[in-house]
């Protein structure tokens, strides 16, 4: 699909949705991630001009448990309804639109690249607020009424671990550290907690940040119903600290700020041991996502040097697992 074609189809979708003529301009591709691609554009209609974003599904297969775009839009919409900072959904693309699977949402100004957010002085104030903000936003996500997201799959902790393990075993890689990690998790499964909406990919890199702090949460495709502490653990995984190992919350903050803000807003106590359980689960899951990404390349489904390279990041996860265990 070329840009002009895309532009025409977009205009038609929005005209139908808004009931008036819409002119699309400045259509540019923002990202072409492994799971989705996003386009930014301006939509002019009825003397207004709105900056919007279209998120389109990737053609290939997805990592186990990822939602289709229609469900993702529904979850994101439900989160916005409950007061989570995320982009408002304007339209879900129907097959007849000829654009593929996806949805259109509001454009939110800000930076998403972690290295810039961690490195640039203009984000200094933002960085000092972000751990606390993450706690508050996660508490808000975990309070989304389950009746609003009843389409989501629900997994118990043992089920979730077994699914990840089956996924891992399907790649046939000899990784004793991963077997160690599964065993370690199986021996320490937390008692049943309240089931909540879990974002599933709440980490640095999926945050839109401005000078004041977090403006919006992106990428809802890994959402599911589960143990709320999974999101806190994933946020602290070393890979999402982008070199700042000393600041466990996304490379910008400390655990105490995250936990305190979460407890205050949610009324739910945070057990550091349970967060560590989910952090180790998170490192393992990231390692298995890397295996998956490189597998897509190795079996010839989608050849790329990027997918090849990511296979050699699995050792970073092995090291992080053993570092967590030995600590």
């Amino acid at each position: 699909m070329d840009t002009e074609d895309l532009q025409q189809k977009l205009a038609a979708v929005l005209a139908q949705q808004l009931g008036c003529t819409v002119t699309i301009s400045e259509l540019v591709k923002l990202t072409g991630g492994a799971a989705a691609q996003t386009w930014r554009f301006n939509a002019a209609f009825a003397e207004k001009c709105l900056p919007l974003v279209m998120r389109l599904a990737h053609d290939g297969e997805q990592f186990d448990g990822a939602l289709d775009k229609k469900s993702e839009a529904l979850v994101q919409g439900a989160a916005v309804e409950s007061g989570v900072p995320a982009a408002n959904i304007l339209a879900v693309l129907e097959p007849a639109a000829g654009l593929g699977e996806g949805y259109i949402m509001a454009y939110i100004e800000g930076e998403t690249i972690p290295q810039k957010i961690l490195g640039q002085s203009r984000f200094q104030v933002a960085r000092s607020n972000m751990a606390k903000q993450c706690g508050e936003i996660l508490a808000t996500i975990h309070a989304v009424p389950l009746s609003d997201v009843s389409l989501l799959p629900q997994y118990s902790v043992p089920q979730q671990i077994q699914r990840l393990k089956n996924n891992f075993l399907s790649y046939g890689e000899q990784l004793p550290v991963f077997h160690y990690a599964f065993k370690w998790l199986e021996e320490r499964m937390p008692a049943d907690a309240d089931s909540c909406l879990v974002h599933g990919d709440f980490r640095h890199g999926n945050l839109i940040v401005n000078e004041q702090g977090i403006a919006a949460i992106l990428d809802w495709e890994m959402a599911h119903i589960g143990n709320p502490m999974e999101d806190l653990g994933w946020l602290c995984v070393n890979s999402w600290r982008f070199g700042r190992s000393d600041l466990p919350v996304g490379g910008f903050g400390i655990r105490e700020d995250l936990y305190a803000a979460y407890e205050k807003k949610s009324g739910r106590a945070v057990s550091p041991d349970v967060v560590t359980f989910w952090e180790l689960y998170g490192v393992l899951k990231w390692g298995i996502i890397c295996l998956y990404q490189t597998h897509v390349h190795l079996i010839g489904k989608e050849r790329s040097v990027e997918r090849a390279a990511i296979g050699r990041r699995v050792s970073e996860c092995e090291l992080d697992i053993m570092d967590l265990i030995a600590a």
Partner: peptide, 15 residues
């Protein structure tokens, strides 16, 4: 794991 990362990415923070 340390020896593997020494080859794969010796700039990695944990390494």
């Amino acid at each position: 794991s340390m020896a593997k990362v020494a080859i794969d990415n010796p700039k990695y923070s944990t390494y």
